[in-house]
Design a protein around this nucleic acid. Sequence first.
DNA 1: ATCATAATTCGCCAAATGGCAAAAGTCAAA
DNA 2: TTTGACTTTTGCCATTTGGCGAATTATGAT
Lengths: 111, 111
Amino acid sequence: MMSLTLVELANRSGVSSSHLGRIERGERFPSARILQRMAKPLGFEENELFALAGYLSASSPRLAEEGPSYIGGRLDPYVAKVLSQEPVDVQRAVIGILSLLKSIARGMTKE
Amino acid sequence: MMSLTLVELANRSGVSSSHLGRIERGERFPSARILQRMAKPLGFEENELFALAGYLSASSPRLAEEGPSYIGGRLDPYVAKVLSQEPVDVQRAVIGILSLLKSIARGMTKE
DNA sequence: ATCATAATTCGCCAAATGGCAAAAGTCAAA
DNA sequence: TTTGACTTTTGCCATTTGGCGAATTATGAT
């Protein structure tokens, strides 16, 4: 692989050359976001780089084919998309509301 | 799924309950290391959680097209997980409730 | 209502990251 | 040797995270 200067890598990754220099010298440890931005310019897949950095365990398996299907359930893609456009605290509030409605429903069935 | 208290999740993950509370309320965004520690107690694979948090891109290998990283937004992993345990019509109803609340809020800000 | 316990939230601060701008270093051309 | 262009490093500071310990809230028993 052709080696890149810090400035070239900075241009391609959007990470400042001063920070890349510090990472290279071991003065800073890159966060996951920085690694994510560095991966392609360096010729890595993101999860490869994450594993190298210790952010992903070596034992972590590949994702299931169906995408985000979780233990016991699957999230509707439309719902996921709409919710993802909202701020995180709104998303959390939605869960709170759902819990509230469920407990109201449970209270109603106890009568 | 049995829901965990913050204290229980803290014990299983090694992350403090006060920090978990802040993450849950949207006051802090968890770093990759924190997500790594939270994954198994929450019933996720690490890379699932990373993808949900936006640390791994949708273009990362083995993530479905419907992956949770959407244009302009990110879906909270806890929200995604909790909702995925519900039937699809409940998930859709949640969106309806959210729309209703937003229109109520818009009506209030017009005063 | 009170009390004890558990859970959650908050104030605060240390630690770490990451970028700006300047300083220092490198190198080839003149 | 000097100069200019380019690269790398450094000083500094804003921002963010994450944990401690205290305060507050919630809950169930009495």
